[in-house]
Nucleic acid binder design. Structure first.
Lengths: 150, 150
DNA sequence: GTACATGCAAATTGTTTGCAAGTAT
DNA sequence: ATACTTGCAAACAATTTGCATGTAC
């Protein structure tokens, strides 16, 4: 459970990356960093912030997602159902439920993942930049639902 | 290096899954299983097979990709640049090059990956079905190109 | 003969782009 | 003052759908 980032923190983060802080960008970043145990879609964010910014454009959302991801402030994840965004967590595994589409993060000690990256990079003559481990299957809720239904 | 699957093998595979064997489906499956060290896009397949089937429709390609993936005969992978398809390999890591978009597979002993899956599943109360490990970065070629350019 | 696959065209979804006006630094 | 961002509408690409015809079983 990360402490909710204060506006001051967010301004600092953006400044540290040389990114102008617009109101929309701040809200977007705040929403993204507050995502707990998972990731959200661009449209989720668009709808959430539409209350606060009635004139918000999807283009702005996508623009900022790209900028923030490029700066490494958030994480972008490609799934069967489109892209998902969330906070950059420590080395972790994404559990992608094929039932409800939700993504849950499970933190994993670096050791195992680091070894994996190094070995794969060496064998593939590859200079690694980011690791993404996803396991698809059914979450507890959907498993229960599935066995109940048939 | 898997042996090139014979038509007889392919027919058997499809029959084993209760899937009618159309000429297009056979060619598609054959092409997919022959993909070496990586994955291809739906459009790659469409273009490749268009010589053989001048009237081939993209819809057919997508239909079959969905059917074959659902049957577990091929693997579907989601990337920044759209979906990619390829043979179902033993536990492996996908090296996704952000330079050229190519995907290379690196086989990894089960032990490490199995442990990862089990641990993550347990901690996330998740019933795992498929594992996908992707590392993004630059392949050897693109690394060279990058350091030469700038 | 029946169920499923094919091929076409049109529709849908997610995402990107061009540009005029506004805002942060 | 300058560079970057916003918002709108239009453009786009990848993928899906509906339906008539054709093919596997």
């Amino acid at each position: 459970m990360p402490p909710p980032p204060s506006t001051r923190d967010l301004l600092g983060l953006l400044a540290a990356h040389g990114l102008p802080a617009t109101t929309q960008r701040l809200s977007l970043l705040s929403a993204l960093l507050s995502v707990d145990e998972g990731h959200v879609s661009a449209d989720d964010l668009y709808r959430d912030l539409s209350d606060q910014f009635p004139t918000l454009s999807r283009a702005t959302v996508y623009n900022n997602l790209a900028v923030l991801a490029a700066a490494g402030l958030i994480e972008k994840l490609d799934t069967h159902e489109g892209s998902r965004y969330g906070p950059v967590a420590s080395p972790h595994v994404n559990l992608v439920c094929t039932g409800c589409g939700r993504i849950k993060d499970v933190l994993i000690g670096d050791a195992a993942l680091d070894a994996l990256v190094q070995r794969a990079s060496r064998e593939g003559q590859f200079s690694a930049r980011a690791l993404s481990v996803s396991i698809s299957g059914l979450c507890a809720t959907c498993t229960a639902k599935a066995s109940a239904t048939g």
